[in-house]
Design a protein around this nucleic acid. Structure first.
Lengths: 111, 111
DNA sequence: CTCGTTGCTACATTTAATGTAGCGCCACGC
DNA sequence: GCGTGGCGCTACATTAAATGTAGCAACGAG
C-alpha cells in the first residue's frame, strides 16, 4: 500500500499531487492528530498526561501519532515531555480561527 | 458506541467537555473530512466528481462524511451537486492559513 | 425502451484503532 | 542493596472504521 509520490513526505498519504496541503490535510485528518496538537497548545505534557488529556486514548495510537508528528517536525520530546516545536506552534496558530469558528458554530443550528 | 454529551451535537465524539472546539476537532479529524471541504472550495461537485477529486475514495465513506458534514451544516446538496454552505465557506476560510503554512512546511525538513 | 447520469446502499475484505497488559529504564525512599 | 512508582514505549487480541466492488432506484436525453 502506501501510495507515495517521490517528492512527498514519507508516511503521508494523498501527496501524489505534490501539493503540500494534501499531505498536511492527510496527516491532520488522522484520528487524534488535531486533538494532540490542541492539547499541547499550552505546554509540554508527558505521554501519560497527554493520554489523560486525550480522554484515555490508547497508548498505541497516541504513540503512532506522536511519532508521525515528530517526523513531521511539529512535536518534539523534551525533558518536560512532549511539546510543540516552533513549527508546531505555528501550525497551532493557523487553527486558532477554528476555535472562534467553533463557538459560532455551536450557537447556530448544525443539525 | 457514540458517546454523546447531551449538550453536544449528535454524532460527534469527544464532545463531552462541552467545548465546541472538541466536537469540531473530532469531526474534522475523521478521514476525508478535511479533504472534502478542501475539494469543494471552488464550487459544488457531484458526488462522483467529488469521488474523483478525492482520489477515488470509496463511495461508502464519502457518503458517510457527506452526511456528517450536512448534519453539521457545512455542506449542502444543491442542483449543482454538493457544495459548501455559507457556514462551510466560513470554515474553509479558517484553514486558509493552513495552506500557506503547508508551503513553508514542505520547504523546511519535516522528517 | 435504452443509455447514461445522478445520489446512495450492501456486503465481504482489509486496515486502523482500541483496550489491556507489560517491557526496560531511571530516579526516589529506605 | 531492593522495592515503588514514574517515564516512554511495545505486544497482541479484540473491535470498529474504511475500502473496493457491485448494484440499486430515479431522472433526463435520444
Amino acid at each position: 500500500m502506501a501510495k507515495q509520490a517521490p517528492t512527498a513526505k514519507p508516511g503521508v498519504r494523498g501527496s501524489r499531487s505534490g501539493r503540500p496541503i494534501m499531505a498536511l490535510l492527510d496527516l491532520l485528518g488522522r484520528r487524534w492528530t488535531l486533538r494532540i496538537i490542541w492539547e499541547l497548545r499550552e505546554g509540554a505534557l508527558t505521554s501519560r498526561a497527554l493520554r489523560t488529556a486525550c480522554d484515555e486514548a490508547s497508548p498505541t495510537i497516541l504513540q503512532t501519532r506522536l511519532t508521525e508528528l515528530r517526523e513531521a517536525g511539529f512535536v518534539e520530546l523534551t525533558d518536560d515531555g512532549y511539546g510543540l516545536t516552533a513549527l508546531g506552534r505555528e501550525l497551532f496558530q493557523t487553527f486558532t480561527p477554528l476555535s472562534r469558528f467553533a463557538e459560532r458554530w455551536s450557537k447556530q443550528g448544525g443539525s
